[in-house]
């Protein structure tokens, strides 16, 4: 059986993982949401097409998404150290996680917003709506179900990345799985961390789906 120390370590690991994931989702959206909106608005069929701006953000998003996360984690270590003073632990992992998540989130936001029927946008334009009004009152509100579903997917992707960061002293459950489960070969701890990660993913998924259904008015009651 696990010792009391190991139990409290695992509980701390859950906290570390939640902290890492939720903060990265938050910062990821702070950067990724405006970027996704910008991609949608400046795209070819957007409400204010601008090929140059679109290309710049398109390339940025593609570059960051094509770097494998583990490599990105190592690449941004100097930046992490600059911001937080150290490059290991749960808090430090938020930096590479955010950098990995933002372009991914931007793409997700872009694809959600593109689902909004062009006719509805045209109707808003015909009423004299400005582009800002269209972004906030048409695009973001009409696409809210899809945005939430995609946020759920993004959260679980970040959860996966956060566990990967364990390989480089990232903190949280992944870290415990690597250090105790793998290096010290304690299969019980490995199993428990894996189960906990699966449970967390399930909880994120169910919560996301529940909220997305709750705010969707397109269903017949």
């Amino acid at each position: 059986m696990l010792t009391a120390r190991e139990v409290s370590m695992i509980i701390e690991g859950i906290g570390g993982t939640l902290w890492m994931v939720l903060m990265s989702v938050l910062f990821g959206y702070i950067l990724g949401l405006p970027m996704g909106i910008l991609l949608t608005v400046t795209g070819k069929d957007g409400i204010r097409p601008n090929a140059a701006v679109y290309k710049v953000f398109d390339v940025i998003s593609n570059i960051f998404r094509s770097i494998p996360f583990l490599i990105l984690l190592l690449l941004v270590q100097p930046l992490t150290r600059l911001i937080l003073g150290k490059s290991y632990g749960a808090t430090a992992t938020i930096v590479p996680l955010t950098i990995a998540a933002a372009p991914y989130i931007a793409r997700m936001v872009e694809s959600s917003l593109k689902e909004v029927d062009h006719g509805v946008i045209e109707a808003a334009q015909s009423m004299g709506a400005s582009n800002w009004t269209i972004i906030f009152k048409v695009l973001l509100t009409e696409a809210r179900t899809s945005l939430i579903v995609n946020a759920t997917i993004a959260t679980n992707t970040i959860l996966g990345y956060s566990a990967m960061a364990g390989a480089c002293g990232g903190g949280g459950l992944g870290d415990i799985a690597v250090r105790y489960g793998y290096h010290r070969w304690q299969p019980d701890i490995l199993l428990i961390t894996v189960v906990l990660l699966v449970v967390l993913a399930q909880i994120f998924q169910m919560t996301g789906m529940f909220i997305s259904r709750l705010v969707d008015r397109r269903r017949v009651e």
Binding site: V120, E122, A123, Q125, S126, M127, G128, R217, R218
Partner: peptide, 18 residues
């Protein structure tokens, strides 16, 4: 000016979430 020129469409184009 568009505020004084209304338009309706074949597929209605209502905001589905409102």
């Amino acid at each position: 000016e568009r505020k004084s020129i209304g338009m309706i469409f074949q597929h209605f184009n209502l905001l589905m979430q409102r």
